[in-house]
């Protein structure tokens, strides 16, 4: 057994679970996980173990987790993955190790009324053991990501271009674009739209039939081009919206602290009414 090694992987979702597989296969004790895209300090370079993503191995881990703990757990872990937080990789590994250990532990199962590890009414599943740090951390990061997902559903502002395309540029704190595509697809089925994450340089484009991932040559220049090709009514409606936003405010009740808490400043540049 090798103690305290550093592992690098490609940063993908399946990469995480390939890594988990290898940790079990080689009984590694991992002290640090680095994405291959991140710069690694030169002196440590020699000690790094590289994991090559293997879909089959990853899916074996995912399948086993799903069978014991249900799809809800997979979704929770996916949210942690999308958080892109520095601690997310190690937490994911720790969480999987925690859950696999619980799945094997017969005493642990007996402690739970109904002894069903999967979620049950009243929240008896081990996923709800909030007294456990790993469980609580996964839940809390998941909640932050979920909040950002909800904010994007709310704060995205489409602008109509002269070819009928509705465009929105975003830069969310976490990588939540994959989590909101279904919402926009269900809602706006009869208009073409593009939601583009300028921070991560990729977007989702809906062409009235399917949603495809696209990468613009230069995200920021794309914004400049858009300014000259707006729909003739775009200026009118964005102006009407700004006027509406001001008119519904009750100035006798002004409460900027609450306003900023609900609409943090970092989102203002994307909000038509706050620009």
């Amino acid at each position: 057994m090798r103690a305290g090694i550093i592992v690098t992987y490609d940063g993908s979702w399946l990469g995480v679970f390939t890594l988990v597989f290898q940790v079990y296969a080689h009984r590694w004790d991992v002290k640090e996980i680095v994405k291959s895209s991140e710069k690694v300090q030169a002196q440590l370079f020699a000690d790094i173990t590289t994991v090559i993503t293997d879909e089959q191995l990853a899916n074996r881990v995912l399948k086993s987790l799903r069978e014991s703990f249900g799809n809800e757990l997979i979704q929770e872990l996916y949210y942690v993955f999308l958080s892109e937080l520095p601690e997310a990789d190690l937490l994911l590994l720790k969480a999987v190790q925690f859950y696999f250990a619980k799945a094997k532990d017969p005493n642990y199962q007996k402690n739970i009324k109904g002894s069903n590890l999967r979620t049950q009414a009243g929240g008896g599943g081990v996923r709800h053991n909030y007294a456990e740090d790993t469980v609580l951390q996964v839940q809390q990061i998941g909640r932050s990501v979920s909040r950002e997902r909800h904010r994007m559903k709310a704060f995205i502002r489409f602008e109509k271009m002269n070819d009928g395309l509705y465009v929105a540029f975003i830069a969310p704190d976490f990588n939540v674009l994959p989590l909101i595509i279904k919402h926009f697809r269900d809602r706006y089925t009869d208009q073409c739209w593009l939601i583009y994450d300028v921070k991560r340089n990729f977007g989702a484009y809906y062409n009235l039939h399917t949603v495809e991932e696209i990468i613009l040559e230069d995200g920021d220049q794309g914004q400049a081009v858009r300014a000259i090709s707006w729909d003739a009514e775009e200026a009118l409606y964005s102006d009407l919206w700004k006027r509406y936003f001001r008119a519904v405010n009750i100035k006798e009740r002004k409460n900027m602290k609450l306003h900023i808490q609900e609409v943090p400043r970092r989102y203002w540049k994307y909000l038509t009414e706050k620009k």
């Binding site: 269900d186 009869d190 208009q191 936003f245 519904v248 405010n249 609450l258 306003h259 609900e262 009414e273």
Partner: peptide, 25 residues
């Protein structure tokens, strides 16, 4: 639900913005 390729749906409810008095819009 959004029926027949139309426009829009309803669900959990979203506050798209908040006025300066802190109320949901």
């Amino acid at each position: 639900k959004n029926k027949n390729g139309g426009l829009g749906n309803t669900g959990a409810g979203i506050c798209h913005t908040y006025t300066e008095d802190g109320r949901c819009v």
